[in-house]
Design a protein around this nucleic acid. Structure first.
Lengths: 356, 356
DNA sequence: GTTCTTATTGAGACCGGTCTCTTTTGCAAT
DNA sequence: ATTGCAAAAGAGACCGGTCTCAATAAGAAC
């Protein structure tokens, strides 16, 4: 059985100062690495610190300096490989500059996002990186901006909000992917997204409050409009949030004999479920169903057939957004920058060439 | 162009107190939600706080209370779906109890781990969750324990360390999986792990410093010993860390005509690379190569053929480890608890039945 | 009306650093 | 020796909360 620790209070600069026989301020100078100290005193203080096993209290430091050395990150769901990759990019870049990351999941819920922001602000993070759950609700983000704390948007822009953002060329990408489908003879298309509407069906772009998805749908429409596809609105499927709901949606979508011949999935988790459902329904990919998905998740190349994907530079997305934030933390003042990273289509074998 | 904010200092309890016409201590009581205050005063203070848009400074609060409401999490790599799932479990459980999570990646490097721990300690996290990169180097962990800060181990135990840990039944799982391979007629086996040794080859169990992997190898040996397989040590492949090194290793392993007929992969990222290489080498799975992997990553069911896997309760792993930590934070004193979560094998179609 | 409790409120120290300002020290120039 | 000055060390306030303890106010009991 372990002996209960006497909870010896951690040793402070004052203790070190006493041990070294110098003033608190002096000890603080060497321990904190600021101000001017003679070498003689420095070694003396360092020795005392060593002897006492001094550990700085970053909290106390933060309180006086006003900077916590921490950035808050809010993503939809860290289990989504898209986000885990981006977060890796963020943490790597942050650590390279001496910052640590507090991670929070919003589960794509605005209320959770607000709560997360409140917590993060209370913890006095130096800056925020957010993938806004709803572009239409941005007052809480606006408020952050007003406090003077830098906030940078990841993957989703909010036009009304004057802050930096890093996104990918969603509209072009979606358009190109859709065109690829069309060029291969597909007309019965579908675009499936996790984004939802109150009644779980899509009427117009107004219903969509996630900017990246909005862009993608526009790209989808662009491609549709360039050909003979009527009312592309009916081709949009919303509400594929979470595995089970996505399965249900996919099952409904694919169960009829008039199911789409080609689907564009808004993220790899959706594509995965569609893939599974197609298999359950004995639909062959690509012969019975073509599939393209956003995000070159690393497993997409090992399915049978391997998936044609829109390759988004996800890690770089995280890296870049952090770089922008760090620049702001460094004092940069400028108009908001909207960085758009290019994507490319990796053609594999999930698109079937139909004869017309 | 935006106008530069006058950087108005945040409003403090003192400001609110003044506005409400009460003492600082009184305002603090209602704002901090502690002590006894009359309703009359409470509403008055709340009104003042509202008017001034008061935001609590969690940093200051932490400094006096000594608790930061934060737990530090160090994993090998958040991009590994194993960890992202576990981290999701952790963050969910943490938030449910009002804690936030600071996330750090060790990249399986002990020095990075040490540095992360130092940072986390300085930030005065209330507790730590760590997947130790090396079970042999645990002095820095031991030191954390001595400071009285709870630390809990995730996925990997360190026998010498008297702290709670949550792992899976690695040895049994590996044994069962290996036996499955053997029972299907395989004798030319291989176990591939990310764990590495100085000379990149495996001599004995002493070389392995990751407890979970050690367990798995033992389980592998257990199964081998129960049959006629000699010198199972030669079947262990180490150093599959990162996609490129894993590819190289897999390529070398599978290029000879005497390649293993069955592989047990220590994590899904390894399995993925092996899968890719097998395809490049035109090896059919499972006819030419059987494959079982640890971790039922969600894509493993959509490959062709779908993979037989060891299903680890990863999310629950994260949830449980957090639960243990929170109990410690709540003051629980007891001998270290070593929770071992059961796994199960999901038989799909990547194991070929050989006739003997 | 007076006294005793008890429920509230007020005052001020404290947490562990940083930072400004003052005092002391060291050393070259006069 | 004196004086001058920059460098180094010391003193103490401060950051924004919490917390202890004393002071006051409000009821209850006599």
């Amino acid at each position: 059985m372990e002996h209960i620790q006497p909870k010896k209070d951690s040793v402070t600069v004052t203790d070190v100062a006493r041990e070294a026989g110098v003033a608190k301020a002096t000890a603080a100078r060497v321990l904190g690495g600021y101000g001017i100290v003679s070498d003689r005193i420095r070694t003396k203080v360092l020795a005392a610190a060593e002897k006492l096993d001094y550990r700085p209290n970053e909290l106390a430091r933060s309180m006086t300096t006003g900077r916590s050395g921490t950035i808050g990150v809010i993503v939809g769901d860290i289990e989504n490989p898209f986000f885990s990759s981006a977060v890796r990019g963020i943490t790597d870049a942050a650590r390279a500059s001496g910052f640590t990351v507090i991670l929070m999941n919003s589960s794509e819920d605005v209320e959770a996002e607000k709560s997360a922001i409140k917590t993060l602000m209370a913890k006095r993070v130096d800056g925020l990186i957010v993938t806004p759950a709803q572009a239409s609700e941005y007052l809480h983000l606006e408020e952050v901006r007003r406090t003077g704390r830098p906030i940078v948007l990841l993957d989703r822009a909010v036009p009304e909000l004057n802050v930096d953002s890093v996104t990918t060329d969603d509209r072009d990408a979606a358009c190109a992917a859709t065109r690829l489908l069309i060029d291969n003879g597909h007309r019965a298309l579908a675009f499936v997204t996790a984004c939802d509407t109150p009644d779980h069906r899509f009427q117009s772009l107004q219903d969509i409050h996630t900017s990246s998805v909005k862009e993608r749908i526009q790209g989808f429409f662009d491609a549709c409009r360039a050909t003979d596809i009527q009312d592309p609105e009916r081709l949009i499927q919303v509400g594929a949030l979470g595995a089970s709901r996505t399965r249900a949606l996919a099952r409904e979508l694919l169960s009829t004999s008039a199911h789409p011949s080609a689907i564009l999935a808004s993220d790899s988790m959706i594509a995965l479920e569609i893939f599974k459902v197609a298999r359950e329904l004995a639909l062959r990919i690509p012969e019975d169903l073509s599939l393209i998905t956003f995000h070159d998740a690393d497993w997409t190349s090992v399915t049978a057939p391997p998936l044609t994907v829109i390759d988004q530079p996800v890690y770089k997305l995280g890296e870049t957004v952090t770089k922008l934030l760090l620049e702001r933390l460094g004092g940069l003042v400028s108009d908001p920058r909207r960085v758009i990273l290019p994507t490319s289509i990796i053609e594999r074998q999930s698109v079937y060439q139909r004869e017309l």
